[in-house]
């Protein structure tokens, strides 16, 4: 029964989830040939530029690399803060 449970809901402590998360980060740096420091700089610069136009939530800011067949893409997820009294 526990087994079924684990399979349906995905055990979070399953070691393969740890492996996948670690790989995600490692490959992120490998693919971009970007050191963690450079990445941090890139993120900060992005925040700086975009903040000139929008009020963004730099807590939830996420940058990712993804590979689609032959090409690489940089994917940034930038949550915009809700302005008081206005919905976006």
């Amino acid at each position: 029964m526990f087994d079924l449970f684990a399979r349906v809901f995905g055990r979070e402590d399953a070691s393969k989830e740890v492996a996948k998360e670690r790989l995600r980060l490692v490959l992120f740096h490998d693919r971009a040939s970007l050191s963690p420091q450079m990445l941090e700089n890139l993120k900060n610069d992005l925040v700086k530029v975009i903040s000139q136009y929008l009020d963004i939530d730099d807590e939830g800011f996420k940058v990712d690399f993804s590979r689609h067949d032959d090409s690489m893409a940089i994917v940034a997820n930038i949550p915009i803060k809700k302005k008081a009294g206005r919905s976006l």
Binding site: R7, G10, R11, K16, A19, R67
Partner: peptide, 18 residues
């Protein structure tokens, strides 16, 4: 091991390596 969640399965591998 895959069944126990202790080894990546085929879909995990394809997804990561694309």
């Amino acid at each position: 091991m895959v069944k126990k969640g202790d080894m990546m399965d085929i879909n995990d591998m394809i997804e990561i390596l694309a």
